[in-house]
C-alpha cells in the first residue's frame, strides 16, 4: 500500500510538485502522465527518497519516506530516466553489484541473478558486457537491476522513451507481468496512449498538480461523458436514423459516408445492448455496431489544457 499525502516540492520560487495526494494498492499499475516539466521525475525522486519534499509525506506499507528512508529503499526499485550502466562490466557483475548493495548474501546472489535474467529474457546475455547490449536489452537490464531484492514498489521513470516499437511491446508485457506479481508499479510517460492499455490506474499531472486520478475508464468518462457508437447498416439509412433519434439515451445521430451512422450515446452498456436489439427487431439490417475508440491523445490534451486557463 502506497499512500502519498500532500507531497510538495519547490525549487526556489518554482513549484515543481503541488500538494500531490493519492494511494495505490498491490497489483496497481499506475500510469503517471504529464507533459515535459510537469513534475513527474521530481515526484518519483521524492518517493525514491532521493529528494527531500518541501512538505508532505508518503508511506509505503506504513514506512515513512522521511523518517525511515533506508527501510523504504529496501522495498523500492527505482529506474531513472537514464541508464546509468557502468562500462566494462558484465551483465551478471552489474546485477551482482546491485544485489550486494541491497545487502543480499553472497550465496543467494547467483540464484537471484539467474531468476531476474530469466524474467527479463536476458539469460543468454549473462556474460556480455553491458555496453554491447541493444537499447532495449539495456532497458530490461535496468529493470532486472530493480528486481533483485523483490521490491514492493517499482518506480519507472519514462521507461519506454527511446525504444523501438518491438522493444516497447516487450517492456509493456514485462511491466504488466510485474503487476500480476502483485507489486505496485508506477510508470511515467508524457504520452498517454503508451500507457493506457496496460495500466489499470492513471494520473494526469501538469505544472505539479494532479488533474485526474483513477481507473482509465473513469477518467475517460469524466472527460467524455458521451460515447460514440458507430453503426453501419446495409441499407435504409433514413429509416435507421428515424429510429435512432427516437430512441432513449441518444443525444444525436449523424449519417456519414458508406451507410455509417455516428451516434452520441449517453447510456450504459445495457442500454447499448437494448438499442441494438431494438434496431434488429425493427428490421434494420445492421452490418456493424461498435463503440468508437476514444482518441487518448485527445483526452490528454483536453485535460491538460484545462489547467493552463
Amino acid at each position: 500500500m502506497l499512500e502519498v499525502q500532500n507531497l510538495h516540492k519547490t525549487f526556489g520560487d518554482l513549484t515543481a510538485v503541488n500538494n500531490l495526494s493519492f494511494s495505490l494498492k498491490p497489483g496497481d499499475v499506475f500510469g503517471f502522465i504529464g507533459p515535459n516539466g510537469a513534475g513527474k521525475t521530481t515526484t518519483i525522486r521524492m518517493l525514491a527518497t532521493l529528494l527531500e519534499p518541501t512538505a508532505g509525506n508518503a508511506r509505503l506499507n506504513g514506512v515513512d519516506i522521511l523518517s525511515d528512508p533506508m527501510e523504504v529503499r529496501r522495498r523500492i526499485g527505482y529506474m531513472p530516466d537514464f541508464f546509468g550502466l557502468y562500462d566494462d562490466t558484465k551483465v551478471w557483475e552489474y546485477l551482482d553489484f546491485f544485489a550486494a548493495a541491497y545487502q543480499i548474501g553472497k550465496k543467494q546472489r547467483p540464484e537471484i541473478i539467474d531468476s531476474v535474467l530469466e524474467l527479463t529474457d536476458l539469460t543468454t546475455k549473462r556474460e556480455s558486457f553491458v555496453q554491447t547490449l541493444s537499447r532495449g536489452m539495456q532497458q530490461r537490464l535496468c529493470l532486472a537491476r530493480c528486481l533483485v531484492h523483490d521490491p514492493t514498489l517499482l518506480l519507472l521513470d519514462e521507461p519506454a522513451s527511446g525504444l523501438d516499437p518491438r522493444a516497447r511491446a516487450e517492456l509493456k508485457e514485462l511491466i504488466a507481468e510485474l503487476g500480476r506479481m502483485n507489486k505496485i508499479v508506477i510508470v511515467s510517460s508524457h504520452i498517454l496512449p503508451e500507457l493506457a492499455d496496460f495500466c489499470n490506474t492513471i494520473g494526469i499531472i501538469e505544472r505539479g498538480a494532479l488533474l485526474a486520478f483513477g481507473p482509465v475508464k473513469d477518467i475517460m468518462k469524466q472527460v467524455q461523458p458521451t460515447r460514440v457508437i458507430r453503426i453501419r447498416v446495409l441499407d435504409g439509412v433514413a429509416r435507421a436514423l428515424e429510429l435512432l433519434q427516437a430512441a432513449e439515451h441518444v443525444k444525436s445521430a449523424e449519417p456519414g459516408e458508406d451507410n455509417v451512422i455516428r451516434v452520441q450515446f449517453t447510456g450504459e452498456v445495457e442500454h447499448q445492448a437494448d438499442l441494438l436489439e431494438k434496431m434488429v427487431r425493427d428490421g434494420v439490417r445492421v452490418v456493424d455496431f461498435r463503440e468508437e475508440e476514444i482518441d487518448l491523445e485527445d483526452v490528454f490534451l483536453r485535460i491538460t489544457t484545462g489547467a493552463v486557463h
Binding site: Y78, G84, R145
Partner: peptide, 14 residues
C-alpha cells in the same frame, strides 16, 4: 556526472 548516483542512493547502501 555519470548519473549513477541516484541508482546507488535508491538502494540501502550506506
Amino acid at each position: 556526472q555519470h548519473g549513477s548516483f541516484d541508482l546507488l542512493f535508491s538502494t540501502p547502501l550506506r
